[in-house]
Computed example of a mutant assay.
Amino acid sequence: MSEVKISAEVRSEFGKGAARSIRRENKVPAVVYGHGTEPVHVTLPGHELLLALRTPNVLLSLDIDGKNELAIPKAVQRDAIKGYLVHVDLLLVKRGEKVTVEIPVQAEGELAAGGNLLEHVLNTLSVEAEATHIPEALTVSVEGLEAGASILAKDISLPNGVLLSTDADAVVLQVLAAQAEEPAAEAEGEAAEAEGAEA
């Protein structure tokens, strides 16, 4: 897992007006907390942060007043319409420390023939992992699965050192049978014929 270095400016102005002013400069207001320390309010470069957050659970190496801190995103607020970053909460972590995070689940492979649908019941799994070795995603094969098949959390293999926090018997993926449309069309045809006969 790669670290992304970002410079953070400590800020002393708060409130909506100050936040708007920060965002006009293409920067993002953020708060850094954890390890029993007082929360530190900082400003982060918007474009660099946006690129970094494309990686789930990215490890950020923050330069705060000349002091280097490691942090992971804990809460990211975006504008509902335009999608720009509004505010970010960052959790301080240390090398070797275990953290609980949500990891995206990705399916690969083709379902058995028949036009069945794959439903993602859970898009992420909650796992416990070392802060500096958080997997970006968990990949599971759905090759050849037929209608009615399901994959549980415990069925998904995890990298070494990663422990499952989600309920082991929780359904993550399931295969739904294709909807049969032809019988419905035939029923409509029969109804039309019946109406014609009555007429």
Rank of each mutant, 00 (worst) to 15 (best):
G115W: 03
I103R: 02
V42S: 03
Q106N: 09
A113C: 04
Y84K: 05
V58Q: 05
A52G: 09
A19P: 03
V99M: 03
G34I: 14
H87K: 08
E102V: 00
L90Q: 12
A71Q: 07
V76K: 00
K74N: 13
I81E: 08
P73I: 10
K74T: 02
A80D: 13
K74Y: 12
E25S: 11
G34C: 13
A30V: 11
V88G: 10
T55L: 02
N57G: 03
E102Q: 14
D63Q: 06
E48M: 05
H35M: 05
L50A: 15
L92M: 14
G66R: 05
G66A: 09
V32L: 14
V32D: 02
V40Q: 13
T43Q: 09
K94I: 03
G36W: 07
R23M: 08
K98G: 00
V40L: 12
L91Q: 14
P45Y: 11
L90I: 06
G109A: 12
Y84S: 08
V99L: 04
D65N: 15
V31N: 04
V76I: 15
A112T: 07
V42A: 05
K98V: 08
G46L: 07
L50C: 05
E69W: 08
G46I: 06
D65P: 04
Y84H: 15
A30E: 07
G66Y: 08
L62E: 07
P56A: 06
N68W: 04
K74Q: 11
G115L: 04
A19T: 10
A75T: 13
V99Y: 06
A52K: 15
K27M: 09
V40S: 05
L44Q: 11
K94A: 13
T43D: 00
N68S: 14
L85R: 11
V105D: 01
L85K: 11
Y33L: 07
A113D: 12
R24C: 00
V101N: 00
H41S: 10
V76L: 14
V101L: 00
E108W: 04
I103P: 00
P45Q: 05
N57L: 02
G46N: 12
Q77V: 12
D79W: 04
P56W: 00
H47T: 10
A80S: 14
I22E: 01
G109P: 10
E25D: 15
L59W: 02
V101Y: 00
G46W: 06
G115D: 07
L111Y: 02
L60E: 06
P39V: 10
G96W: 11
L49A: 08
G114K: 05
A107C: 08
E48Y: 03
Y84L: 03
R23I: 09
P45T: 09
Y33H: 04
S61L: 14
G83T: 00
H41E: 01
V31I: 13
K67Y: 04
Q106P: 01
P45R: 05
N68G: 04
H35F: 13
L50K: 13
L85T: 14
